[in-house]
Simulated scan of single mutants.
Amino acid sequence: MEFFQKLYDEHENVNVRFVGFTTDLTRYDFGIIYTSLFFAKPLVVCMQTGRSTLLDPKDLDDTEYLQKVFKMDNNEQTAELIEFFKETIPQSHFETEYE
């Protein structure tokens, strides 16, 4: 480990929510990890593909970002996912000085 500089090594008890649901177009399975790390953004993991991202409500306004992260090319699917996440992802109370 002499070549690495440790940036963080945190242990935290977190809330995890596993959600599976279907729409007319597809099935979704997500793990949502609520943590105080990473600017309090929940870590969202697609259990089918392993793709993951940190999300907060502001990120849900960027349709292209969600399409890129979860590899979706169907706008209707993206709209369904945004609707789900808007009900699921809590409002962040964390403010940064870097905005």
Rank of each mutant, 00 (worst) to 15 (best):
F18C: 11
E64C: 00
F4E: 10
A79Y: 06
T22E: 15
Y98L: 06
F84W: 06
V44H: 00
S92Y: 00
P90E: 11
A40Q: 12
R51W: 11
R27Q: 13
K6R: 14
G31P: 01
R27C: 13
F70W: 02
T78C: 08
T78H: 00
D29W: 13
F70I: 00
N15R: 09
E95W: 10
L81Y: 03
F70M: 01
N75P: 01
D24C: 11
D73C: 05
P90D: 13
D9M: 14
Y8S: 14
F94R: 02
Q48D: 15
A40P: 06
F84H: 01
M72F: 03
V45T: 08
E99M: 10
E10D: 04
V14A: 11
L60V: 02
V44F: 04
F18V: 14
T78S: 09
F4R: 10
Q48E: 14
F70V: 03
R17I: 15
E80S: 07
V69Q: 03
C46Q: 03
R51V: 06
V45G: 05
T96H: 12
Y65I: 07
F3M: 07
K71L: 14
F85M: 12
F85Q: 03
E99F: 09
V19C: 02
T53F: 04
N74I: 15
I33H: 03
E80Y: 09
L37S: 11
M72I: 04
F39P: 01
T26L: 07
N15P: 00
K58T: 15
D56I: 05
I32L: 15
L60P: 02
E83L: 11
V16H: 05
E80K: 08
L43F: 02
T78K: 10
F94M: 10
I33C: 05
A79N: 04
D24H: 15
K71Y: 14
E99I: 06
Y98N: 04
I82M: 02
E76M: 05
Q67P: 09
E80R: 05
F70E: 00
R17G: 02
R27I: 12
E97K: 08
Y28W: 01
H93L: 15
L66G: 05
M47Q: 07
I89H: 01
L43A: 04
V45D: 05
V44L: 03
D62W: 01
E95I: 14
F94W: 12
P42K: 12
V14N: 06
K41I: 00
T49H: 06
F94N: 09
L43C: 07
I89S: 03
Q91E: 10
K71W: 10
L66E: 12
M1V: 08
T23C: 01
L54A: 12
P42S: 04
